[in-house]
């Protein structure tokens, strides 16, 4: 990290630093145990361990088992990762193969 003046993203960095203490509540909605679902689960676990160690909660829900939850959470795509906390609510859809975009989606990295 360089000095505040030199970095135009200093404010965002500040934000991220602040975020670094916040608690994350995440839900991953999958549709059955498919290769895509398992890949998504593995990747999100990996990302969480890496960036949110000790301050996250990850719940995995199979919408096939609980279709009414899909309605309540406005799920259309699978897999969908929902960041319940911190607000605002964010959605990341896909198999989480692009780690950068997952981090952007979770506000863990500024969108460059």
């Amino acid at each position: 990290m360089t000095s505040k003046r030199a970095n135009p993203f200093a404010i965002l960095d500040e934000d991220i630093k602040k975020r670094s203490k916040e608690r994350y509540v995440l839900r991953l909605y999958i549709s059955g145990i498919t290769p895509r679902s398992t890949a998504a689960i593995e990747r999100i676990r990996h990302i969480c361990e890496k960036h949110l160690e000790g301050r996250y909660e990850l719940e995995i829900i199979d919408i096939y088992q609980q279709p009414s939850l899909a309605k309540g959470e406005q799920i259309i795509a699978a897999p969908t990762l929902i960041r319940k906390l911190p607000l605002p609510l964010r959605r990341v859809i896909g198999d989480m193969s692009n780690e950068d975009r997952v981090l952007v989606g979770l506000d863990l990295r500024p969108n460059k």
């Binding site: 895509r36 699978a78 959605r91 896909g94 989480m96 975009r101």
Partner: peptide, 20 residues
């Protein structure tokens, strides 16, 4: 604006809701 797309996905959510 709420949605971030990362990797491949399908619309199973829609199918399941519709099916339900």
């Amino acid at each position: 604006s709420e949605i971030e797309e990362t990797g491949s996905y399908d619309l199973d959510g829609l199918f399941i809701r519709l099916g339900h």
